[in-house]
Amino acid sequence: MLLEVRDLRTGYGAVEVVHGISFELAAGSMVGLIGANGAGKSGAMHAICGLLRHTGAVLLDGQDLARMSAHDRARAGLIMVPEGRRVFPGMSVRDNLLSASLHRRVRGRAQQTLDTVFHTFPRLQERLNQAAETLSGGEQQMLAIGRTMMGQPRVMVLDEPSLGLSPLFVQEVFRVIGALRETGLTILLVEQNVHHCLELSDYAYVLEQGHIVLQGAASDLLVDPRVRAAYLGTSNQPSEAEEVRQ
């Protein structure tokens, strides 16, 4: 397994929001992590990338990253595309991209990677010297993905890439994610948009209130009524859920 997370617990302050979850990604695979708002998805992602204190193990290719700082994890190749894009607003597109390729492992190949990014997102090349804040939401999302690509991730953690985008851009973002997957990149996709997520993923985990309540091949989950229940919360009233379905 390329990435293996074991018994991850994390939270904000004294409040634990993720209560010991374990999951794994094989090299070259794409794994989805889905769940309703407040299920703890973002907390879990921030924790594995080192932005939140946590317990448990995060193994990247057998090496435990749990005690590393966030920047060392990124340098090791576990890099996120943050929720809400979080591009560096006042900096140019070029500087945003280069910000992820400053460390030794990737510095030498920055130019080639840049070409790959431009190949994937021609629009970014057109806007190279523009400040990131002047880009539209969709373009910012492309920049955020491109920036992470610049760090040559071994595992890319995509946190809610469709959030706050117009439907047209949502299609575009998922098309790109599909294309990245074709290149052999290992992707952990956290998404509210269940259908898109499951259509692209090989395997998926369903998170509910900080626990993994369901997992399986994405194609199976796609037709599993329990996934829908996890979102619309009718799991406590199965009879009613049945009624609703009819």
Partner: peptide, 19 residues
């Protein structure tokens, strides 16, 4: 029950689906 049965709502939550 009404809103949960509303396909527009389901789509908003689960994402517009091609399937």
């Amino acid at each position: 029950a009404e809103v949960c049965a509303n396909p527009v709502v389901v789509e908003a939550y689960l994402g517009e689906s091609t399937l």
